[in-house]
């Protein structure tokens, strides 16, 4: 069993200020994504062209498959978004809001880069 995992799973508590280090920033392609295990859940972590980092729940609410990290990252107007690899619905990276259907959103996580390491925190805002 992987050390990191045990720690993060143990320390899991969403929105309580716990930060889980997931990987070096260099591990994420620019305009790419990776999946991380954070608090027992699959979280998609993205890196934009401007080198900002965002994290969303990895499960696409439309297809219910755990795949968002594998989508194409781009822009719609000024909004950074990822297109679900399943049926191409667009989700805003910053908020998790679905740009094609405002009634749908995925959880967005706090995320930061500390000394070149990406760390994911809890879900943004109230659940």
């Amino acid at each position: 069993m992987n050390e990191t995992v045990r720690e993060t799973v143990g320390g899991s508590a969403s929105g309580t200020g716990t930060w889980t280090p997931v990987c070096p920033l260099s591990r994420i392609d620019v305009e790419g994504g990776v999946t991380a295990l954070v608090g027992g859940r699959a979280v998609a972590v993205f890196r934009t062209f401007a080198d900002e980092v965002f994290a969303l729940d990895n499960v696409d609410p439309f297809s219910r498959a755990s795949v968002l990290a594998r989508g194409i990252v781009g822009t719609r107007g000024d909004v950074d978004f990822v297109a679900s690899p399943m049926h191409k619905q667009a989700f805003a990276l910053r908020t998790g809001e679905c740009l094609d259907d405002p009634t749908v959103r995925v959880a967005a996580y706090d995320v930061r880069v500390v000394d070149g390491t990406v760390e994911v925190g809890g879900v943004r805002g109230a659940r």
């Binding site: 995992v5 499960v59 219910r64």
Partner: peptide, 19 residues
Amino acid sequence: VLHEGPVDLGATIGVGAPR
């Protein structure tokens, strides 16, 4: 088989035994 929503490993399997 599809799940209703995201699966939480921590909750279903318990701390420290994610497999």
